[in-house]
Structure formats: structure tokens, C-alpha cells
Write a protein that binds this DNA or RNA. Structure first.
Lengths: 223, 223
DNA sequence: CTCACAGTTATTCAAGCGTATAACAAAATC
DNA sequence: GATTTTGTTATACGCTTGAATAACTGTGAG
């Protein structure tokens, strides 16, 4: 019985690997499948190591949730271009890979179902949610301002809620039943819906790689 | 040590009580909190009885999921009135109690997070989802037909996806952060959004109790 | 009133859980 | 190259889990 070989990793590496392993476990087998032993196996270490990096299993789950939220929102930050282009990219980014896929939904839903149970997760959730919606609210205000519209704060807030709702709902549909939709059907629907909501057409963004993909998408369905 | 008293219930009663207890456990403590012992305690029986009515824990969870889906969709069925009134009620019903509250979301999310893991749940989910969207698709077709519009099937399908997305997304926001919204803000937003999507105003439904409540809602926010 | 059935309880079991801790060894330090 | 440090393994513990089974008892049939 010889002891198994092991590699000493840096703290950053190890924590990253362990959190990735946690997310893999959750997406493959649900929260119930994310046991310390499963996580350790997936990360190629032994179970005890998890508690060397995380004070408890709850803590690693909290850290994992932060990563999930970051992945769902980071692509929609730091967009550039005109307000209209940024809105356009925002829509596209939120409804295509890697934000919209079934793994994202599995992870998101697993944590959401515990948000109302676990106060620590609730805090993490609320911060992420508010920051996302405020970002969208600012973006919409910029778009309307660029159109020369004076925007009443209450109307802008309602608009943000509506647009957020459309994006959330379409994201949900895409994740849940992606195979029922053609590639970019949802993006196309989102564009027409949001154009209807804000009362203005939305121009295509500047021609980056991403946006070329996006325009291809539109060409197919948006006619 | 005397044996505890017990009451012999009919099969229907017992199954109903056990499923309700299961839902209570899930909404209060997540899927992880729904152990056979917790469910039994909540239902006022002992753990062994669960396996007398359900072949395994998985089976009671599947039955519970069916109930959750039914609760989320049943209120939106068998609406009456003109197509426009039915659409109006449909929107209202889906964004107010008892469909939209944090308990509904807890239950929904808990099961959704297992849909991609458990094939039995996936089947139950898919059936519920398709039936809901087909209902909405028919409803929208009726509304547009009543407006004298000839409806291309593809356009109607896209419209149904969009409206479904708006409703899902707003439902989600209302459940997640209900306290951030005033009573009927979401209903009001849904009306303007969906009016924009279908290109027609939506009349208020016939004056039932429900609809009076609904109009009060609109009066506050929609003007 | 008796009896047999079946709904229910009580108890047990093996497996898996999160956690604690001691032994070990890879790498950094001197 | 010896020594220290600490990342990592290995093992054990108490507890909970889903499940199986035996014992009990409420209840309807006769």
C-alpha cells in the first residue's frame, strides 16, 4: 500500500480547480451530487484537501455561486461602441453561448433553489442581480438619451424591468429547450421585442467577430 | 414505550398529504431538506409509510413535480371570455398570486435543477412546458384572428415564444425580488410589453372579482 | 363480536455524508 | 544536503440517509 503521488499546486490554482470541479459535479448530478468526495475525485485530489482550502462545504458552494454569477454577467460588462451598439451586443451576448446553454441553467437553478434557504447565498444573489439590472438600466438610459429622448426615471426603471424580463425569459427558454429553437431564433425575437418596448429600431453593432456572427444570426430569422 | 396512535387514511388523502409535505420540505429547506424522515415528520407519520405509497423517494419527487407544474399552469387554463379577455386574464394570472411568489420559484427551481439530471423529471417537464406554450400559441392566434389579422404560423410561433419569454422573465423577477416591486408593477409592465409585441392594445377582461383586482392594479401603474 | 386484512409504526442495516486529525512527503529554506 | 514548512493523503468518527422488514393495530366484513 503505497501513498499516492501528488503535486503541490499554488493556492490560486487549487482553489480554481476545486471550484471548477464543484461546478462540474453540480451540472452533472445536481447539488446533491456535489459531495466533498465527488468534488475531490473530479479534481483529482482527496476529500480532506477541500477543507484545507475552504472552511466548510458551504463555503466552497458560496464561492462556486460567485463564479456562476460572474460568468453569467461578465460578458455583458465592458461593452464598447455607441449606446445602441452596446445594447445590441448586450442582447446578443446574453442569449448565445456561453451564457445561454443548459449547463448555465443547471448551475443557476441549483443555486437559485437554495437562495431562499441559505442567507449567505441570498446575499451573493442579491448583489449580482442588482448590479446586472442597474447596468441594464444605465444602458437603456444611454440609448434613449442618444435618441434625444428625455427619460423619466420611473419609465426607465420600468423599461429596464421589462427588457430584463424579456432577456431572462428568452434565456430561460433557450437554456431549457435550446434544441427546439434554431440557432439564433431567440436573438431575433429579443431584438424585435425590445425594439417594440423601447420604441426604436436597434442598429447592428460595429463589425467585430462577435458581431459578424450576430448579423449572420439576424439575417436568417429577422429577415 | 407505547406505540403511537395513528389514523388510517384513504389512499388519495394519504398520497395528497405526503406530496404536500414533500413540497413544504422542499420550499423550506431545498431538495436536500426533503428527506424521507423530514417529509414523514411534516406529514405526521413515520418514514416507513412513504415507501408504502411510493416505490421510492424518486417516485414521490416525480409526483410532487407533477403537482408543481399543474399549479403553475392550471390557473391559466379554462379561461373564458373573448380571446382578448382571455389573454388579459392569462397575463394577470401568471404574474400574481398564487402563481408568482417565492415559494413557487423555490419549488420550480429545485426541480428544474434536476431536470437535466433525471430523465423521469425531464419527461414530466417537457410535457408541461410544451402544453403551456401551445396553449399560449393558440390564445395568441385567437387574439390576432379576432383583430382580423391573418396570422402566419411562423410569426405566431415567434410571437408565442416572445410573449412566453416576457411572462417567464417577469414571473421570475417577481418571484425573486417581489419586494422590490409594487403590487402590480409587473402586471402593468407585462401589458405594455405584450401590447407592443402583438401591435394591439389589450382590453380589460369582464368584471369578475379577479378582474376588478386586476384593473385596480392597472390604474395605479399603467396610466 | 370476532377475525383477517392491510395501513402504520418501530427497528434495523449498509452506505454515504461532512468533518476531524494524524501521518506523510514535496518543495522551500538555509 | 539537512531541516523546516505545509500541502496533501489516509483513516477514522459520528451522524444521516434511503431502504428493508418485522411487529403492531385500526378498521371493515362477516
Amino acid at each position: 500500500m503505497s501513498r499516492r503521488d501528488f503535486h503541490r499546486a499554488t493556492e490560486a490554482e487549487r482553489r480554481h480547480d476545486l471550484i471548477e470541479a464543484t461546478l462540474d459535479c453540480i451540472s452533472e448530478a445536481g447539488l446533491q451530487g456535489a459531495t466533498v468526495r465527488q468534488i475531490a475525485t473530479k479534481a483529482g485530489v482527496t476529500a480532506g484537501l477541500i477543507r484545507h482550502y475552504f472552511a466548510s462545504k458551504d463555503v466552497i458552494l458560496q464561492e462556486a455561486y460567485k463564479v456562476v454569477i460572474a460568468r453569467l454577467t461578465e460578458k455583458a460588462k465592458n461593452l464598447d461602441g455607441t449606446p445602441e451598439e452596446r445594447l445590441s451586443s448586450f442582447i446578443f451576448v446574453n442569449l448565445t453561448e456561453p451564457v445561454a446553454n443548459s449547463r448555465s441553467l443547471s448551475l443557476w437553478a441549483a443555486f437559485i433553489s437554495r437562495v431562499s434557504v441559505d442567507p449567505a447565498l441570498a446575499t451573493i444573489h442579491r448583489e449580482g442581480y442588482l448590479s446586472f439590472r442597474q447596468e441594464l438600466e444605465q444602458l437603456l438610459a444611454d440609448v434613449l438619451a442618444a435618441k434625444g429622448e428625455s427619460v423619466h426615471p420611473a419609465r426607465n426603471r420600468a423599461l429596464a424591468i421589462a427588457v430584463n424580463g424579456v432577456l431572462d425569459g428568452l434565456w430561460l427558454e433557450g437554456c431549457l429547450a435550446g434544441e427546439l429553437f434554431e440557432e439564433s431564433e431567440l436573438v431575433s425575437i429579443a431584438f424585435s421585442s425590445i425594439e417594440a418596448l423601447i420604441g426604436h429600431p436597434i442598429k447592428a453593432p460595429a463589425p467585430t467577430d462577435m458581431d459578424r456572427e450576430y448579423r449572420d444570426a439576424l439575417r436568417i430569422h429577422h429577415r
